[in-house]
Each structure stands twice: as C-alpha cells, then as structure tokens.
C-alpha cells in the first residue's frame, strides 16, 4: 500500500511525459510513409496498444497463477486489475486497426490472422471478467478466473497458430505488412516512446485499481464484522 502510494505519481507523471513526447513525434516530427501517407500515424497508437494487449494478458495469467498456487492476495488483485485494462487496449487495437484498414484495404474489417487473433483475445478477456464477477464470494471468482486464465495462456499460441494457418489457406498473406520490415529511426523513436507511455499508463491504472480493490476488501471485512455483531 505504501509502495503503491509512492509509485503512483511517478507512473502518472511518466505517462503524461512520454505520452506527450510520443504524440508530438508521432503527429508532427515523423515523416509520412512513402506508401501509406499520413495514415501511418495511426500505427503509433495501434502497434503499442497491440503489444500491451498481449502483455496484459501474460501479466494477468501469471499473477493469476501465482495467486492460485501461493495464495498471495496481491497477485489475485493484480490479475483482476489487469483484465479490464488489457481488454481496453485490445479494443483500442481493434478500433484503431479499423481506422487504419479503411484507407489501406478499403474495408473496416478483414478476416486477417492478426485481427482475428486479437478479436479472440478480446473474447478471452471478456470471459475472464464475466467469470470473476459471477460468484457471490469474490475469492471463489478469482480462483475460477485463475484456472481460466491459465488455460487461456496455453491456448493463446494454439489459437494464434491456427488462425495464421486459416488465413493463409484462404487469402495471401501479402495484405498486411506492418509498416514494412525495416523501420526508419524517425518512426522508431515515436513508436518506442508511445510504447513506454502505454506501459507507464498500465502501471498507473493497475496501481489505482489495486488500491481500490484492497480498499473495497476492507469495506467488505467491516460489513461482515457488522453482520456478525462484532462492531
């Protein structure tokens, strides 16, 4: 609790700083792509969000596993807090992807492997969130969610593989090439800045959520004691 209070303003400040710097580079101080023109600037939101969507899932599954095996309450809270943030990043990825896809491919949505995998990831997040809130006893929900998150962790590579396979069967893979394999330094700088800004934002929101969760737990404990007449 004390540690989180100390870290909170730093994470928040870092988010603002990196975010503003990243956006400045992304919007004003980087060249338009020779093929994609100005729309390439969507990438600076899209790609870091996509990275974060996976990163949050891995963090969520690992902390859920830690919570399940070593019964550490902080790990449970971290898993629960990560899920909505990860889901939000996934939604940002999908929507920014659609905005990018419209001028590039002429369609809002194509059943491309990456898009489909991202969509499935969103469903995994939503399933986890629905499951942990479906029980009267919040601890039971967290435990059930932990099993699901771990099963999902095994499944994510399988789903990724199968979806890749599926699209190569149906359409050539040439449609999507993320900004080309060799990326210029002028684009790399804002991309990395944004990536770190997103990561700092994640830490900031996660800490906020964990604090809220711990406080809610204390309120519950007080209510319980009230119900048992101990107060």
């Amino acid at each position: 609790m004390k540690l989180s209070r100390m870290l909170l303003p730093w994470a928040g400040g870092l988010t603002l700083l990196l975010g503003i710097a990243g956006l400045w580079f992304a919007l004003f101080d980087s060249p338009p792509d020779y093929q994609q023109g100005e729309t390439v600037r969507i990438m600076y939101v899209h790609v870091p969000a996509a990275w974060m969507s996976l990163f949050c899932y891995v963090v969520m599954a690992i902390s859920a596993g830690v919570g399940l095996i070593w019964k550490h309450p902080v790990a449970d809270v971290a898993a629960k807090g990560s899920a909505p943030i990860g889901a939000a990043f996934t939604i940002v990825t999908l929507i920014s992807g659609a905005f990018w896809g419209k001028p590039m491919w002429g369609k809002w949505w194509v059943w491309d492997a990456r898009l489909t995998a991202e969509l499935v990831l969103l469903f995994l997040y939503l399933g986890y969130i629905a499951l942990i809130h479906a029980f009267d006893d919040p601890k039971r929900g967290l435990k059930a969610g932990a099993v699901l998150a771990l099963v999902g962790l095994i499944n994510v590579p399988i789903i990724k593989f199968s979806v890749d396979w599926w699209t190569t069967m149906h359409q050539p893979a040439s449609v999507v090439k993320m900004g080309g394999p060799a990326i210029d330094a002028s684009m790399m700088v804002p991309l990395l800045l944004m990536a770190f800004a997103f990561k700092a934002y994640y830490i900031y929101v996660l800490l906020l959520r964990m604090r809220a969760e711990v406080t809610a737990g204390k309120v519950r404990a007080l209510r319980l004691r009230q119900a048992h007449g101990a107060v």
């Binding site: 499935v120 399933g127 499951l131 699901l148 999902g152 399988i158 789903i159 199968s162």
Partner: peptide
C-alpha cells in the same frame, strides 16, 4: 468461456 477456446 468455452466458444473462443473451440476456434482451433
């Protein structure tokens, strides 16, 4: 919970 896992 189950349908996304069925996709592969």
């Amino acid at each position: 919970l189950v349908l996304p896992l069925y996709i592969p």
